[in-house]
Every structure is written in C-alpha cells, then in structure tokens.
Nucleic acid binder design. Structure first.
Lengths: 239, 239
DNA sequence: AGAGAAGCGGACCGCGCGGTCAGGTTATGA
DNA sequence: TCATAACCTGACCGCGCGGTCCGCTTCTCT
C-alpha cells in the first residue's frame, strides 16, 4: 500500500554532511539510483503500514526490518524520524485532497460531500497514527501545514456547493468538515477492535447534525482557514 | 486539582514483596500513615495535572519532582506507571458518572443531557491524556472497565429520559452519548491552543445530530453496553 | 571493463525511561 | 520516652530508543 510518490524527506535548512546526501534536493541532480529508489519505496510502504498498525510510537528499527533494509538506510533517506512521519502524513492528506478535488465537480453536491467524509474517516479509522499526528507536533511542520491548507480549501469547495444546494446548513465551513472527520473516527476508536465499521454510525450522526433541519445556533465561531498556521505560531511562542 | 479520593493503586494479583506493602489492600489494615497519605495525595494531584498537560508520555521522574517526593515513593504507592494512570483515569470517569447521577433527576431531561455532555467534553478538552487513555491499553484494565460500565449506565439513564421526553431521536443510546464526548473533543483538538473553547461548537453540532428533526436511518447498530469488555477480550486474544 | 560515486548495513553511542533496593528517617502506640 | 514498623530517598540497573559512522557493496557512466 501507499506506493505513490510520497514526500521528499528533505528540509531546506538541512545541509548534507557527506558527499551528495540524497536528502538535499538543492539544484543538484536529486536523481536516485535504481536500488535506492526501490529501497525508498519499500521503506515508505513499511512505515505507512507499521505506523497505521502500531501508531507513531513504532520504532525505526522495526520499520527498517519490515522493509528489509538496514536502520542506517532509513536515516539516509530521512534525516529524522519526524521527517519520515511528515512525508507519510502529507501523503495521506494529499490523497484525500485529490479525492476531494475530483468530487468537487460531481453532479450531486451532498453526495459528493458525504463520499468525501466517508473516505476521510475510513482512512483515519484504519490508521492509528493519523489522529496522533493530527494532534501532535507533526502538525507544526511547514509541509504538513501546506497540505492541511490545501485540504481545507478543497473541503471548502465541497461544502460551499452542498450549502448552495441547500443540503447543508449555512453556518458550517470546510474547516468544520475536516475537523469533524477526526471526530467520527475518535468516537468509534475505543471499540474499533470489535466493531470496525462503527465509525459509519457516528459519521451518519454527525452528518445529520450538518443538515439544515437540525440547525440550532452554534455557540462558537468557526476556525479560520489559516487557523492551523496560527496554531503553530502559538505552539512555538508558548511552552 | 483532583483532590478527591482517587483509586487505590492496587491489583488483587499483586503480592507485596516487602513487609506491609501499602499497595496491597487485602484484608489488612490498609491504613495509611499521616505523612504517607499526604504524599499520596500530592502525588495524585501532580500526576493528574502533569498528565493533563503533557499526555501520558509524561515521565514518572517529572511527576515525582512536581509532587515534591522521590521517585521511589511513587512506586511505593503504585506498583507500575500503568496503575497510576488507571487510578487517575478511573477517578475522571467516576466523577463524570457522579455528575450524571445527580443530573438524572433534573427537571428538564434535554438540558440535563446537554449539561452532562458539556461537562464531559470540557473535562477531556483540557486533558491531553484522556483521549490517549481512552484508546490505549488502559481501557483493558478491569477497574477502568468497571468505571466505564457505570458511566455508560448513567448515560443510558440520561439518554432514556431525554428520549422519552421526545428531545432526542429514538435510535441513540447512552453508549453513543459517551463515545460522542471524545468526538467533540477530538474535532477541536488540532486547534485547541488558539481556540480553546471551539469544542463547544462541535458539541453543539453533534447535539443537533441527536435531535429528532435531523434523524435519518443510521447505517450501523449501536455498540452494546458491554462492548468495552468484549473489546478487551478481543484485544487479549489478538495482539 | 573499470573507476569512482552512490548507496548500504549494523555495530555503536548517549540518553531517558520504568522500575529496584539498601539504608537512613519519621510517625505511632504503648 | 522509646522500640519498631512504616515510610522515604536517590543512586542505580537494564533496556530500547533515535541517531551516527565508516568499511564495504553495488550501481552507473564512459
């Protein structure tokens, strides 16, 4: 799984300490040797699966073993465990955004939004690391923030269409929709082992809350589109 | 904070390996010396606050320092870090259940349910460890399971009253309500630093989904009252 | 084919964690 | 007051983690 091109594992500030460090994209070739490309993909697949099963606490050693490569090779491709996490998390976000972009021209706006949310929750429900990453330091990474913003924009488009069609209450934003994905997932999480599809129930319940018929005034304004960036700034200045 | 009598930190199977280990309640005195009782309370308060701020990854050393006691003292009261976590988590659950029990005789059932959920989410929103504990191994502990069952029963009472009053759709159970507390909390978590009260918005949205006006058929049956126990069994057999 | 860059692997390091223990300290009850 | 059980402390242990390093292998290009 997760065999598409995921992330690059490079940060601008990181300078190679050995001749031609592949983590530096720079203006250099940035061309991967065939075996290196193969290992990289195996690593990303193994990391994706392992993080999904064990959460972000999964050790690099286990991931490397699963990918059939040495531990050192992992750090050749990603300077830090965090960089690896970021690459995979961004990939997840991007894929969901891609789906949303496709759905944004679908004939039935309400069905499109529902489909978008269903896939989004399903993705999270089968991935223990997703919620952890959404709440932890990972969120502050610039690449993650960029992907989050894009996802929010796509969600906003979908939401606006459904709203204009009268399928969704007027006071709900795309940001709300994105954040509610994690909500449905979290509700079902405590009993995920015995009822792996329970998230469908809570997604449906939440979706009912989005309908105009249910609308009661909301006691708090929606988060702004760039709230995640503000969040990072707050986290940086604080603790 | 959290100064009420919280947990006992003892497991039946644990046998003391030193003369009169206080972690064993047994049929023995189980009477704490004055200074020991004081330290224990300081420990529980410090652990509660630290876990809330830093999550369950907070180290025992930090907690001990905050409580002004030695690390060894922590393990004198709680055989394991997990036991300490369980004690605190059970305390949280019990307190919420207590509130629910009080509210179960309030005149307005819908307002009572709303109040119950508001306090429940508020409690979690200010406690980083709560969601982690609700999803991790902690949930399998027998004491936690007992507290969870009690909480579910109280929630069921509140829900039934609101349902009978026609304030809540018929296909929603107390278990649903409990699980949805975590949902509202999780939705707001990613932007908790910049919008600490945002959970109110999502709780209101979810509550709107509980109203009869919004009711659409739910695609998955509600979890049973003892689902958490089954969950533990499944986790035990699997792994 | 051969030179040399690119890539690989796994022993190794320092760290901080949960948990232990021997020996000093203090509350308690007679 | 005093004997003793209960209690506290902090140095200590083993472990597994993220991350480093360098000798060796493998691909690539001419």
């Amino acid at each position: 799984m997760a065999s598409t091109a995921a992330g690059d594992g490079s940060r601008p500030g990181v300078e190679g300490r050995r001749p031609h460090d592949p983590r530096v994209v720079g203006d250099a070739p940035a061309r991967l040797r065939a075996d290196a490309a193969h290992n990289r993909r195996a690593l990303l697949d193994a990391a994706s699966a392992t993080f999904a099963e064990e959460g972000m606490d999964a050790s690099i050693a286990r991931i490397a073993a699963r990918a059939g490569i040495g531990k050192g090779t992992v750090f050749r491709h990603f300077a830090t465990k965090q960089h690896l996490v970021v690459a995979i998390f961004c990939d997840r976000l991007d894929r969901l955004a891609d789906l949303g972009a496709e759905l944004s021209t679908a004939p039935d706006p309400a069905a499109a939004l529902s489909e978008f949310m269903t896939v989004g929750v399903e993705q999270q429900a089968s991935d223990r690391s997703f919620c952890q990453a959404a709440t932890g330091d990972t969120r502050n990474d610039p690449a993650v923030r960029a992907a989050s913003v894009r996802l929010a924009e796509v969600a906003e488009t979908l939401t606006a269409r459904a709203r204009d069609a009268g399928s969704i209450r007027a006071d709900v934003t795309g940001q709300d929709v994105v954040l509610l994905l994690g909500a449905a997932c979290q509700a079902a999480a405590p009993v995920a082992a015995t009822a792996p599809e329970l998230w469908r129930r809570y997604l449906a319940l939440i979706f009912d809350g989005l309908r105009p018929q249910a609308a009661h005034p909301l006691p708090h304004p929606a988060p702004t589109r760039t709230q995640l960036a503000d969040e990072a700034a707050a986290a940086g200045s604080a603790g």
